[in-house]
Amino acid sequence: MSDSTWQKSSYSAANSECVEVRTAGGVIELRESDEGEVIVRTIAPKFAAFLQGAKAGEFDHLVTVGA
């Protein structure tokens, strides 16, 4: 879809178990680094709303730190 570079969070450090993101033709793409063939696509406004919710802690109940 695009040759833009995948980015991962600096919180992932050298860990290969991370979510990567890139923009491709006006679409935001997300994938897990160890499952690169599975890509989720969304549009920028929906991704921005998701990030805003994540920053506000709306999804904290879904994860266990250190698991």
Rank of each mutant, 00 (worst) to 15 (best):
D60K: 03
F50D: 06
V27H: 10
L62M: 15
A54N: 04
A49G: 11
E20N: 00
E35A: 14
S33K: 09
L51Y: 00
T42Q: 06
E20W: 02
F59A: 07
A13R: 11
D3L: 12
F59I: 05
V63R: 08
M1V: 13
L62G: 15
T64G: 03
V65N: 05
D3K: 13
F59Y: 15
K55N: 07
Q52Y: 11
V21I: 08
A54Y: 08
E32A: 14
Y11G: 06
S9A: 06
A49W: 08
L30R: 05
N15V: 01
P45A: 03
A56Q: 12
F47I: 11
I39V: 15
T64Q: 12
E35K: 12
R22E: 02
Q7T: 10
L30P: 07
A14R: 04
V38K: 03
A56S: 05
L62V: 14
A24F: 01
S9D: 00
E20C: 00
A56K: 08
R31V: 01
F47H: 13
F50Q: 01
V38Q: 12
V63H: 09
G36D: 10
E29Y: 03
N15I: 08
K55H: 09
V19A: 01
F50V: 10
V40F: 14
V40E: 06
A24D: 15
S4M: 09
E20T: 01
